[in-house]
């Protein structure tokens, strides 16, 4: 491998990591509090989850396309890519936060309230710690899928390892496609293993 290619793989990988990291941070910043809020509000839960599920069904390439002409949100470049990736990453984070909190044993929650804990104390000291494994699992799913989906971001000038893949497709050149696909796959494996390890470490008891 020549050094120019190696350096390009390195920089595009870095850009890819940046895309994924910003996406996960933003999606978590929205998805975690939203999951907590939905756990308390039965009436709007179904609506929000339906909309989130629906967003997930839009093919990713199409979603990038839909976003392009939108004012403020759209346009060529990273920002549009990150917005689209966030929409996909949001659902697993939201759903797993919700499942984690709703999955707390009713007897445990009831005794927490009956022993005189405030609602805030129940959330922070009981529900969230017990929901952590589920929340981390959501982050893991979101991260791994985002690493894959982010390769499509190159289609709208988002950069990242997708640049190789699209270039390879245009040139009908398998090695170029692999220069993007292999690092992306490795990245996904490492993220999956790493987050699974964290998930195990944080499991209570």
């Amino acid at each position: 491998m020549n050094s120019r290619l190696a350096s390009e793989i390195f920089w595009l990988s870095l850009e890819h990591v940046e895309l994924v990291a910003i996406t996960i941070v933003v999606a978590a910043a929205i998805g975690l509090p939203a999951g907590v809020a939905l756990a308390r509000r039965v009436s709007i839960r179904r609506w929000v989850m339906s909309i989130a599920n629906l967003a997930q069904t839009v093919p990713s390439l199409a979603l990038f396309g839909f976003l392009l002409p939108l004012p403020f949100l759209g346009g060529i470049g990273k920002r549009t890519a990150i917005i689209a990736l966030c929409l996909y990453a949001l659902l697993p984070i939201l759903r797993n936060t919700l499942t984690g909190i709703l999955g707390v044993d009713a007897a445990v929650r009831e005794s927490a309230v009956a022993m005189g804990m405030t609602e805030r104390q129940v959330l922070w000291q009981v529900e969230l710690p017990l929901a952590v494994p589920s929340i981390v699992a959501g982050l893991r799913i979101a991260t791994v899928t985002t690493i894959g989906t982010a390769t499509i971001a190159a289609a709208i000038g988002g950069g990242g390892l997708g640049v190789f893949i699209f270039r390879g497709i245009a040139m009908v050149d398998t090695p170029t496609i692999l220069a993007g696909a292999v690092p992306a796959a490795m990245m996904a494996l490492v993220a999956d293993e790493g987050l699974e390890w964290i998930e195990r470490k944080l499991s209570p008891g």
């Binding site: 044993d105 007897a107 445990v108 009831e110 005794s111 927490a112 309230v113 009956a114 022993m115 005189g116 804990m117 405030t118 009981v126 710690p129 017990l130 209570p204 008891g205």
Partner: peptide, 29 residues
Amino acid sequence: IRLRRRMGYVIQDAGLFPHWTVEANVGLV
């Protein structure tokens, strides 16, 4: 909140916090 802290509460499967030790559970209130 004050009312509940003036009453001990014990239920069928104890409702202990699974992520807390026995000491932390007993010392909750």
